[in-house]
Structure formats: C-alpha cells, structure tokens
Amino acid sequence: MTSELQLELITPTAVALSKQVESVVIPGIEGDMEIFKDHIALITFLRPGKIIAKDTAGSDTFFSTGGVVEFSNNKLNLLVQDLYQNSQFDGEELKKIKEDAEQKITSKDLSDRDAYLLNTTIEQINNLKS
C-alpha cells in the first residue's frame, strides 16, 4: 500500500486513533478539505464538523468542535479539543454542546468569528442526525 498516510487523532486526554488511512476529510476553517498522501506540509484550524477517515475497508466518522491540523511527511496530526465517535452522535453531550451554543449566540458582544463558529456548531450537529 503506497498511497497511505498516518493519521493521529489526539485529544487532551488520550491518543484517540492512530492508523494508516488513504485520505482524511477535515472541516478546515476556510472550507472542507480532503488530505491525501504527499499533500504539502500544512498547518490550519478545524471548525466544528465531521472528520472522515477513509481507507480501503471503509470510513470512520468523528465529530469535533475544533482543533488544530498539522500535516508533514505524510503524517497527519489532528489535535482536537474534543472528539465524538459515531455511536455518540445522538448522545447527551452533543445535545448539551448545541444548547450551549444556542444560548451563547443570543448574547450581543460576540465577535464575527465566534458567531460563525457557534452557528457552524449548531448547523453541523443538526446535520449529523440526518
């Protein structure tokens, strides 16, 4: 298998996933992108959304509310502040995040960036269920 890259999903509490994958779809701050082998070295941010790791056997989907992406030498490090597995998509935690975001968005002194992030959070969580 030559067309593989090493994916590491790291949360503050553990290394959640470390495996060889073919490509990873990440919700970048400036738009979704899919990273394949030999991508240019890159540092960027995640906005809230789905992370999809694809390999020959299929794909794994995760949800995160944000983090940092670092890619170099065919090693993709995703430092995410939180991570939810497929099975947790209907769980209480995500519901709570959504409610928090809905509450925060009503406050007036929000920067554009924060408002954007909160909006995306709500939208993405809604999308997960469908």
Binding site: G28, I29, E30, L42, T44, F45, E70, S72
Partner: peptide, 13 residues
C-alpha cells in the same frame, strides 16, 4: 523543521 503552508496566515493561527 520544515516550511509549512499556513491557512490562514501565521499570525492569525
């Protein structure tokens, strides 16, 4: 160390 592609720019990151 290698040069990265930054998106958005360094300061913002």
């Amino acid at each position: 160390l290698q040069s990265y592609d930054y998106e958005p720019d360094e300061n913002e990151i």
